[in-house]
Design a protein around this nucleic acid. Structure first.
Lengths: 154, 154
DNA sequence: TTAGGTGCAAATAGTTTGCCAGGAA
DNA sequence: TTCCTGGCAAACTATTTGCACCTAA
């Protein structure tokens, strides 16, 4: 029983190779980390995980590979409301855009797809005659648990 | 003929004083710059303008005052898709949230209010049981001029 | 073979912190 | 008078650049 297409490992690799880019050992490693990540990772988390697979990998190579993926529109860069400093987080670009909700109390990140969001993007393209390349909707606030609890966090 | 309420200078000052905060010469200067800005300014632009009014003002004071205004929800922090490095831009928190569209070619920032956006926020609060404090919707793409032109920028 | 990629060191950008003197309430 | 605030210097975090060596195609 095959995995759904979005979970086939190596998809990012295939995308980059089909664009004529060189596939190095380091890139393969970093791409596999990005692809298998279950949460949003920042550059230093990404480096740490890549080094578990290949201890030689340099921080700079991570940044350069992230830049490459960004330029090719294969990953999206998130700020997650700058709750943890000014670092950026990365995720594979999804088929359908989603919203990121960041709880200001517990720090949990929730994703949400919405038909209204899709329609809003359509309205922007039409009414503003603006050709959308990338969107980022981040919402800060309090999640269901935190807004109904008075107990201190943790 | 009085100005519309949103344009009365000193409104931010009044807000901070009503919260019992000390009003210093430096804060008054920085607040007046924030209030009269016609575009989105970053910290260093803000500093430059504040120094025209009071050459003594320190960069650190600008950051501390921006932090204060953020904590009190009186200004919003924007990334504007990180088109010009990692700096942040600031604007007075509007009555009604709006979308920021950033043209990836000419750099122009356009604002857009939308009923669909208001409804989307309502949906998030309801469906996700998430209490929204702040939202940021930034869109990168090509504006009407740039997407219909082949001439190089500038 | 060779253009493109990598690692290392250093530089840069933006922002924050420590500390003491100064001024608003 | 009493904290809160400001200025200066230094630290810090995240990221980028320069350059010589390396390697995928």
């Amino acid at each position: 029983m095959p995995l759904p297409e979005t979970e086939i490992p190596g998809r990012l690799q295939a995308e980059l190779m089909s664009r004529g880019l060189r596939m190095t050992r380091q890139r393969r490693t970093i791409l596999s980390v990005v692809e298998t990540a279950k949460q949003h990772l920042d550059a230093s988390q990404l480096l740490r995980r890549a080094r578990r697979l290949d201890p030689q990998i340099d921080r700079v190579t991570v940044y350069r590979t992230l830049g490459l993926l960004k330029r090719h529109g294969l990953i999206d860069e998130l700020d997650l409301m700058h709750m943890q400093g000014e670092k950026h987080f990365y995720e594979r670009r999804p088929q359908r855009d989603h919203i990121h909700m960041a709880c200001l109390r517990c720090g949990k990140i929730t994703e949400f797809e919405s038909d209204l969001f899709d329609r809003l993007k359509g309205q922007i393209q039409r009414d503003c005659r603006f050709h959308i390349v990338v969107t980022r909707l981040e919402v800060g606030g309090y999640c269901a648990q935190c807004r109904t609890t008075d107990q201190p966090k943790d």
